[in-house]
Simulated assay, not measured.
Amino acid sequence: MDAKRAFRCLGIETSCDETGVAVYELGRGLLAQALHSQAAVHARYGGVVPELASRDHVRRLPALVRQALAEAGLSPSGLDGVAYTAGPGLIGALLVGAAFGRALAWSLGVPAVAVHHLEGHLLAPLLEPDPPAFPFVALLVSGGHTQLLAVAGVGRYRLLGESRDDAAGEAFDKTAKLLGLGYPGGPALAALADRGRPGRFRFPRPMTDRPGLDFSFSGLKTHALYTLREAGGDEQTRADIACAFQEAVVETLVIKCRRALRATGFRRLVVAGGVGANRALREALDALARAEGVRVHYPRPAFCTDNGAMIALAGCLRLAAGEAAGLEVEARPRWPVEALAPPGG
């Protein structure tokens, strides 16, 4: 690499049902990104079909890489490293991005690095103009994970609490399906909840009546099912149930965030993951921040869901510190984020 040139990294994200590619440069920021959502592919099945997800990544990835490089004004030889999501996620989908990324890096003679998908989400707010300083409490809330972490720096993560069953986003999707909504269910349920009447139904706030920072959301969808059976399924009742469900999830998350902030003494809260784009959650967490005298940081909605930009950033930080993967292709469907070490460690 030319010592006078900044470090540029290509990031590849294929952990589930979005194919994301981005180019990030240290000191300059995000140069380009390209994203393809598979929502239309999976909508007819009401959820992600792993084999279809893998095949679509194979089809889309080469063109998205070319698109991102063209947007950045680069040829492949202008890259100094390649980062790919190695896990957690769907094993077939991960292998597509990992094999492509590792092969591209080898062909260019540049290092590759296997990035943890959740580290990408945790660092996504660093892509914003006013990034959070370390340390902070992170609420990682998505379709596959609901966790609270103490983040002391890049690669320095301590798990404070997590869901014992369904993640919050998973509960949103399953409850949306009960209410007859399409895929993806989370945004559809949130839109229906906006038409609901607060107070008609009250759902429990799981695991808030005891100490600790763990979550449990599977019972809420069962509560929604029984409420729907008893109250009927007309449009207004469905909206009222969606409203009560969303209120329960949001208040539960807020209660646990408050506990985590007080337990750690940290003055910053970062919200990451797809559910972090939920408007009701953001409003409630903004109110929490005002009441507690802390700052709350969110990525822009496009960086809440899976994307290549967060992988390019996380990979760039690790590659620039001298970290690099071997020639093997790494893919880990299960991979605890707290097992990570700081870059180069």
Results as ranks from 00 to 15, higher is better:
A242N: 06
E251D: 15
G308E: 10
V294A: 06
R258W: 15
R238C: 06
I255S: 10
L313T: 04
C316W: 03
V254Q: 07
Q246C: 12
V254I: 14
A287L: 14
A325C: 08
G308H: 07
G315R: 00
F245E: 01
A277H: 11
A287K: 12
A260E: 08
I255G: 07
G308F: 08
E251F: 09
G315E: 01
A280C: 05
A325N: 09
F245M: 03
L261Q: 09
R282G: 02
Q236P: 04
L281Q: 00
R262A: 15
A260N: 09
V294W: 11
Q246K: 06
A314Q: 00
A263E: 15
H297P: 00
A331K: 01
G293E: 08
H297A: 00
F303S: 01
G276T: 11
A291E: 15
E292G: 03
G265L: 10
D240N: 10
A325F: 06
G276A: 15
I311A: 04
L285H: 10
R258H: 14
A331S: 03
H297V: 01
E235R: 13
T264L: 13
V296S: 01
V296F: 02
A302V: 15
R290M: 06
V294I: 15
R290N: 06
E328A: 10
R262T: 12
A289S: 08
R295K: 10
I311S: 04
R238M: 07
R259T: 06
A277D: 12
L327K: 05
R295G: 05
I255K: 14
T264C: 09
A312Y: 03
R262V: 14
D240L: 08
L253G: 01
A277N: 11
A263W: 15
C316T: 03
P301D: 13
R268S: 13
A291V: 07
A287P: 03
A312R: 02
F266N: 07
V329H: 04
A280M: 04
E251R: 10
N278Y: 10
R282P: 02
L261N: 06
